[in-house]
Design a protein around this nucleic acid. Structure first.
Length: 270
DNA sequence: CGCACCCCCTGCCGGC
DNA sequence: TGCCGGCAGGGGGTGC
């Protein structure tokens, strides 16, 4: 589910309600996530106040008073949502942060590919390898050039490499390559300057559009208030194999790259 | 270095 | 109506 736009949407929806809130108690129902939840998770969070929420790629980082921070990742199926304290428990509710004012932050994740972890900044090694944010800076051909230089791998794999760029997943990699007119299979180092220009522009447009529309709700994405996103209505190629290209009506093709479904128009994308 | 191929896990969908 | 295979927005590990 969650790529950069979805994670950013969740961050924004939680920010106002969570900053300043105190964690009164913590309930963990299932410790077996991507990494097991450590034994001291609850005690290190209890009594802490949330000061801010930041995003690193697809990770959310909750600043707390004291030295610890809370790191969360939603994997494929994770949700973080605010509920009233007496709301009924749901299937796959794994972690509940019981806050003041009768509210609860719930981490729900059917597939358990997500992550919740408390630690000092230096201990949270997951985020140390996350590359620069594709939205934070103004990307350009000059800025992309060193990333593609000498790399024979398909450009789509490179876009999704979280150590090179933090936050782009399968949906948005496909969509930005469509808008840039570049096939996902193109070797990164063969991209010409004008193609890198187009790609930089497409990265920004796709991600800002997606954030503005609250992310993509393909099956069940919801923000921290349970609201869906609407960028799925703008998807030109993702999961549209066989459908006509919105621009030229050529049927969209599906190929597999690095084990992930990849979609493109063979006429509009070269 | 970067790939293919495995794993983790639940849910859903289409074919039979 | 089941059952089964394939697939799904994630990351990580292995071996080549």
């Amino acid at each position: 589910m969650p790529e950069l736009p979805e994670v950013e949407t969740i961050r924004r929806s939680l920010l106002a309600k969570l900053t300043g809130a105190t964690i009164r108690s913590v309930t963990v129902r299932e410790r077996r996530l991507r990494r097991p939840i450590a034994r001291d998770f609850e005690s290190r969070l209890r009594g802490r106040r949330v000061l801010n929420i930041r995003r690193r790629g697809k990770y959310l980082l909750f600043d707390l008073d004291g030295d610890d921070r809370l790191l969360a990742h939603l994997g494929m199926s994770g949700r973080l949502e605010m509920r009233s304290g007496n709301a009924p428990e749901e299937l796959h509710d794994h972690v509940r942060l019981n806050l003041d004012r009768g509210r609860t932050l719930v981490f729900n994740d059917p597939r358990r590919f997500g992550l919740m972890r408390v630690g000092q900044p230096t201990e949270l090694d997951e985020i140390h390898h996350v590359g620069p944010d594709p939205l934070a800076a103004e990307w350009s051909a000059d800025r992309l050039r060193p990333l593609v230089r000498g790399r024979r791998r398909p450009i789509k794999n490179l876009l999704m490499d979280q150590t090179l760029l933090g936050g782009i997943g399968n949906i948005y990699a496909n969509e930005m390559l469509y808008r840039a007119g570049i096939r996902p299979t193109r070797r990164a180092r063969t991209l010409r300057r004008r193609e890198l220009d187009a790609l930089a522009g497409a990265m920004r447009r796709v991600l800002t559009d997606a954030v503005r529309l609250g992310g993509s709700s393909i099956s069940d994405f919801r923000d921290g208030d349970g609201r869906p996103g609407y960028f799925q209505l703008q998807l030109a190629v993702y999961d549209r194999a066989g459908d006509p290209c919105p621009r030229c009506r050529t049927p969209i093709r599906r190929v597999v790259l690095a084990g992930r479904s990849s979609f493109y128009c063979r006429r509009c994308q070269r």
